Amino acid sequence: MSGTFRPEQLATVTFGGDVVDGHLGPENAEIIQMHSVIYNTRDEIAAVIDTHSPAATAFALANASLPCRTEPLLRFGQSQPVPVVPWGPRGSDVSVKGIARVLAENPGTNAVLLGNHGLLAFGPDPVATGRLVIAIEESAAAELGAAALGGAADFPSGALDAVQAEMKTPRR
């Protein structure tokens, strides 16, 4: 859908939710605080994506964290399980305070599952954040598929260090 946006469909808002330019309908205004708490908590964040992709949302519906057991999660910066924020009405104080609490408890996470809702992923720019969303969705689908085979295996010790070292190795 993002490829079909027209300028009149977009709005510029402050972190407090005040519209600076454009129009923001009530169905979108309620999520501003959910995104703002991430921007206000993590200085390095410049993009937040809220999605309801099927496999990641299945974990959110189950209120189950998504383990880090696929290499793309490591490569895109999510080396710990994606934690779950307990359910609260979208954009409510319960939801926003829950996001803030889970971020404080998991300072290395680049995503949270919103219980009974979906996924919030965040990163340094929209492209990196989009890649993380795809890695999370594919990992969630793989995790669900592996469950039918007896469950996914954890990485061996040192996997994160090995992946990071390999990513720094110059290629010809």
Rank of each mutant, 00 (worst) to 15 (best):
N63C: 07
L144M: 10
L74E: 12
P170R: 10
L74N: 09
G123L: 00
V112L: 07
A64E: 15
I49K: 09
A58V: 04
L160C: 15
N40K: 14
A29D: 05
S92L: 08
Y39H: 14
N63T: 04
R42H: 04
A148W: 08
N28S: 13
Q164C: 10
R90Q: 15
E27S: 13
T70V: 12
H23R: 14
S139R: 10
E8I: 04
S53I: 08
A64M: 15
Q9W: 09
P72F: 05
D125L: 07
N40G: 12
A29Q: 14
R171D: 09
D18Y: 05
A159L: 06
M1E: 06
V163G: 07
N40Y: 04
V133C: 15
L24V: 03
D93R: 12
I38T: 02
G151Q: 01
V37L: 06
L114S: 02
V85W: 02
F122D: 03
H35Q: 03
P67M: 08
L66P: 11
P26Q: 01
P89T: 12
R69G: 11
R171T: 10
A162E: 14
T41I: 03
G77R: 10
G3R: 05
M1K: 10
D18H: 11
A55C: 15
M34P: 03
M1V: 12
S92P: 07
D18R: 15
I134T: 13
D93H: 13
L160F: 12
M34E: 11
E166C: 02
C68V: 09
E27Y: 14
E137V: 01
D93C: 06
A56F: 06
E166M: 08
V48E: 03
V19W: 03
T51S: 12
L160M: 09
A147R: 06
K168L: 13
M167G: 06
A146R: 11
V84N: 14
G150T: 00
G151L: 05
A64K: 14
F5G: 13
A62R: 10
V94S: 15
F5Y: 15
G130S: 02
A64T: 10
K97P: 07
F155I: 00
I99H: 05
V37E: 06
T70Q: 14
G145C: 11
A142S: 15
A128N: 13
E8T: 07
G91Y: 07
D18L: 09
E166G: 09
M167A: 15
V19Q: 04
M34V: 05
Q78K: 03
L103S: 05
L120A: 00
I136N: 05
A142G: 07
T57A: 09
V102I: 13
R172N: 08
P124Y: 00
L24T: 05
P67L: 00
P54F: 08
N40T: 12
G158K: 00
A46W: 14
M167F: 05
D125M: 02
S92C: 09
L61M: 15
S36H: 01
S2A: 15
G77C: 07
T109M: 11
V84K: 08
I45H: 01
T4Y: 04
P67F: 00
G115K: 01
Q33E: 07
A135K: 02
P54Q: 09
H117P: 01
L66I: 09
H23W: 13
A55E: 02
T57M: 00
R69P: 02
M1P: 08
F155M: 03
T12N: 04
A111N: 06
A55Q: 06
Q9S: 07
A47K: 01
A100C: 10
L103M: 06
